[in-house]
């Protein structure tokens, strides 16, 4: 059995207008607090995989550890809590894309260290290998090191658990290829890419069961000691490429694929 800890932050809904602005507290997004948020999509995949694994391996348990403003987390939980059974652990702090990854890892480490009954020998540390906010790709690695987990895998799309508890991990590497590794078992850290599972449908009954633990977790969330001044950004700009959206209906898949190939070839 595994104790699976999924680390997942919240990010603004990607459909929103995301405009970097510098305020008194440093960089952020225009109207960031008011924008609707979602669970980071990479972390979401990690959560779905964790729930799937916990269901397959009896006795396993899933914790979702999240650093973010608790009022915003509460809103996000109204959807996320319907997707899979888990116990929430909250570190009340900033969730923006401008927080230093080391500081985030420190806060998550403190939160995970406080989980009662967590058995480090059974620990699988899950998270996204990237983030939809400003993915440095380093938070999970630092956190793993702090937890003493040296078997680390990034860009994971598949995890297979052997009968002896060993782990076979399929990681994305260059050129669209995969690397398959095995390790003897937990503890291990896995930074998930998209995984293999579809987004589960909302299930309010699962949500209501989760909320019995989610609300107390939000209420007793401790402020996370995240030093916003730990990193200083000289300038922030949106990616240079322009979003050019065309609305095209009824285009066959082959034509769409050919367009992408032509674009890559050019």
């Amino acid at each position: 059995m595994f104790h699976i800890v999924v680390c997942g932050g919240i990010v603004p809904d990607p459909l929103q207008t995301l405009e970097p602005v510098k305020g008194p507290a440093g960089w952020g997004l225009k109207n960031e607090l008011m924008l609707p948020s979602i669970l980071d999509p990479w972390a979401s995949h990690a959560l779905y995989e964790a729930a799937h694994l916990a269901k397959a391996v009896p006795g396993s348990k899933v914790w979702l550890v999240s650093l973010g403003p608790k009022a915003k987390l509460q809103q996000v939980m109204m959807t996320v809590a319907q997707k899979a059974p888990f116990e929430l652990v909250v570190a009340d702090g900033p969730a923006g894309g401008f927080v230093d990854s080391f500081e985030v890892a420190e806060a998550l480490f403190a939160a995970i260290s406080g989980i009662a009954g967590l058995d480090a020998s059974k620990l699988l540390l899950f998270g996204g290998w990237q983030s939809a906010s400003r993915g440095s790709g380093s938070t999970l690695q630092i956190l793993g090191e702090k937890l003493g987990i040296t078997d680390q895998f990034q860009g994971v799309d598949k995890l297979t658990v052997g009968a002896d508890g060993s782990l076979e991990v399929m990681e994305r590497i260059e050129g669209g290829a995969y690397q398959i590794s095995t390790c003897t078992g937990a503890p291990a850290a896995l930074g998930w890419a998209t995984g293999e599972l579809p987004e589960p449908p909302n299930n309010p009954q699962v949500g209501m069961a989760n909320m019995r633990l989610v609300m107390p977790a939000l209420q007793k969330a401790k402020p996370a000691a995240v030093n916003a001044a730990a990193i200083d950004y000289q300038s922030v700009t949106l990616p240079a490429q322009k979003r050019e959206t065309r609305v095209v209906k009824d285009t066959p898949v082959d034509v769409i694929a050919q367009e992408i190939i032509d674009w890559l070839a050019s």
């Binding site: 008011m34 924008l35 609707p36 009022a71 809103q75 109204m78 959807t79 809590a81 319907q82 909302n202 309010p204 949500g207 209501m208 909320m211 609300m215």
Partner: peptide, 22 residues
């Protein structure tokens, strides 16, 4: 957003309703 609506339409403390909405 939802935070505003939950206050105006008085279901800020009803998580069952908020989930049904989502």
């Amino acid at each position: 957003g939802d935070d505003v609506r939950q206050i105006m339409w008085r279901y800020a403390d009803r998580f069952d309703l908020q989930m049904a909405v989502q």
